[in-house]
Amino acid sequence: MATQAMQTMRRIGFLGPRGTFSEVALRSRPESEHAEAVPYLSVDAALGALRSGEVDAAVVPIENSVEGGVPATLDSLAHGDPLRVVGEMIVPVTFVLAARPDTAFADVRAVSTHPHAWAQVRAFVARELPTARYVPASSTAASAVDLAGGADTWHEATAYQAAVCHEMVARDHGLTVLAHDIGDNTEAVTRFVLVARPGPVPAPTGSDKTTVVLFQKIDYPGGLLGLLEQFAVRGINLTRLESRPTGESLGQYCFSIDLEGHLHEARVTEALMGLHRVCAQVRFLGSYPKADASAVTVSPAHADRAYEQARQWRESLESFESFESPER
């Protein structure tokens, strides 16, 4: 982001409590050096604080390499007052099984963590704790914090004896690590996004991603294919495509999409204009630099120069100057 925009981020919210992977993602951003980090107990709370002006930006998880998109984030970005994604971060995720110091491995009858973390340790639990039940938590850190909170916050009705979390959180809250590196996939990562209120779109870098949400006017056979063709004919690669219920009625879905490219590129602009013609709504969620900084490959036929040459050729038809396509 531009330096001026970074300086305006004085308070940045994140999915808390302290010690979540969302905070790790936030700390990796240069904006965090000049901003107060404010934890919130849910994605909706963090993005709600952003919409209300309580914070200037928010960091939330949007996608996991094992479990896919994060529904709370996808749904909150698709509805409500518009927000813009201005950056993304990729964080490797490693988990430990943590418990109170007086708890032995054999004492664990229930385990708590975030649903996406639970999906990433299922094989470990099935092998080592086959009879343990699962207790959902709002975040990995929340499960550890509540477990360490003592009798005032720990109730037998929702009791669990262990939490799946980051080792740092376990140590910070006085928990004992019963097992290290318990993830089923050692290469697992989670993608986080830095979200702000709408503002100027930053200039393209050549390594950019754009996020949109598409709402169909009507559901019909081949409807999704028609939307995807807008990208295909312009040589645009999609890196994520997920359907989410709109909440209006059963069978009504919108499509959350990440694509390679930037709004200021002709091929992306024309694709979004084409979608605007055929969709009930196109929600633009931002163009921003890719976390891995890898260059986006664009064929000559879909480069900005090709679109400009086509426009010039079209204009020449009106003046009868030429009926030939310009040489490439």
Rank of each mutant, 00 (worst) to 15 (best):
I236T: 12
Y253T: 15
L259Q: 00
R234W: 11
L214A: 03
R234V: 05
D184M: 01
R191A: 13
T190R: 13
L224F: 01
H180G: 14
F215N: 06
H180V: 09
D219Y: 03
R191Q: 12
G235V: 04
H180M: 09
P204Q: 04
R244G: 10
L178Y: 13
L178T: 08
A266K: 11
Q230C: 08
Y220W: 06
Y253M: 14
I236C: 10
R267N: 12
I236L: 05
F231L: 04
D181F: 07
A266I: 11
T211Q: 07
D184E: 05
A188V: 06
S249E: 08
G183A: 10
N237L: 10
E229S: 06
C254N: 03
Y220Q: 11
K209E: 07
V195R: 02
E187Y: 03
P198K: 08
D181E: 13
E260A: 05
L259S: 00
G223E: 09
L228S: 11
I182Y: 07
V233A: 10
Q216P: 15
S256Q: 06
L238P: 06
P204G: 07
D208R: 05
V189T: 14
H180R: 14
R234N: 10
G235Q: 05
G247T: 01
Q252Y: 02
G223P: 10
V177G: 10
S256W: 04
E265C: 03
P202M: 13
T190C: 12
R234Q: 10
R240M: 05
A188G: 15
S243Y: 02
G183E: 14
E248V: 12
P221S: 15
R191I: 00
I218D: 13
V213H: 01
H262L: 10
E187I: 00
G261P: 11
P204I: 07
L263E: 08
G223L: 04
A203H: 02
D258R: 06
R244Q: 09
V212I: 06
Q230F: 01
V193N: 01
E260S: 10
